[in-house]
């Protein structure tokens, strides 16, 4: 299994797009996070700088990073579609990989990307928390990181299945970025109980918009994402992720590799 992941990184480390997109993610996230803490409203007596403190830092930084997560999703779309357009997936099957090997490789890649970005957020958050001299424990509310990790898996799993169905980067990226909007339009036409369980809704709600000032979030369980509790959202998201992986494999086996 880890051999498969090693091969994936052998393909990726010389790939400029990989460095550019991760570079953007690594740069933008702390930059925007820092900027958010510098906001000052005279009329609104909240000290935004408290977002740097533990435990606020975890909620805010994962919320900000969740937007740049879409970038990593796009990277995944590009990586998967490249395998079709370069016909390298075909070649690797000819050389002795199975279609399952292909899916497993990409799933391992997704997990490693999510781990990488979550770990990065942990270090950035820890850095800001210590610098700001906060007294609370670093560990409080680190559950947000776990949720962010699941969300990251979720976005990339959507990216994976889209890329496998469509096979062309341009179309898949457009659909991936639009999927949130497309889905919200579809949601208008289904009963609300169902609508709140749609995949992009569930996944994007994992990192909720921080309550005003970011400081009032006291207990994670108090956070309500629409009508569904966070814990339910997590479970549903994990079910979706597994379904996306399974369907990606099924679709791949049904179609020819051209």
């Amino acid at each position: 299994m880890l051999d498969l992941l090693r091969i994936e990184y052998k393909k990726l480390t010389p790939y400029p797009t990989f460095w550019i997109i991760f570079g953007l993610f690594f740069l933008f996230t702390p930059f925007v996070f820092y900027g958010a803490g510098q906001i000052k409203f005279d009329a609104f007596p909240i000290d935004f700088a408290t977002i740097y403190n533990f435990p606020n830092v975890w909620n805010i930084i994962t919320y900000i990073a969740s937007w740049f997560n879409l970038l990593i999703g796009m990277l995944l779309v590009i990586i998967v579609c490249n395998e079709f357009s370069f016909k390298t997936f075909r070649q690797q099957v000819i050389n002795g990989h199975s279609k399952a090997d292909f899916i497993i490789s990409k799933i391992l890649l997704i997990i490693s990307f999510s781990l990488l970005s979550t770990l990065y957020l942990f270090f950035i958050g820890a850095f800001f928390g210590y610098i700001s001299g906060s007294e609370a424990s670093i560990l409080t509310n680190t559950k947000y990181l776990l949720i962010y990790f699941i969300q990251s898996l979720g976005y990339m799993s959507v990216a994976l299945i889209l890329a496998i169905i469509i096979r062309s980067s341009a179309m898949s990226i457009i659909l991936f970025v639009c999927s949130i909007f497309v889905e919200s339009i579809i949601r208008l036409f289904v009963p609300e109980v169902l609508a709140s369980y749609f995949p992009m809704k569930i996944i994007s709600n994992l990192t909720p918009f921080p309550s005003p000032g970011g400081v009032q979030v006291s207990s994670i369980n108090a956070v309500i994402t629409d009508s569904i509790s966070l814990n339910i959202s997590i479970i549903v998201a994990i079910v979706y992720i597994i379904l996306f992986w399974g369907f990606s494999y099924i679709i791949l086996t049904k179609k020819d590799i051209n």
Binding site: K11, P14, Y15, P16, N82, F86, K87, R90
Partner: peptide, 8 residues
Amino acid sequence: TPNFYPYL
């Protein structure tokens, strides 16, 4: 066709 990564 020869199928390889163009950037490698």
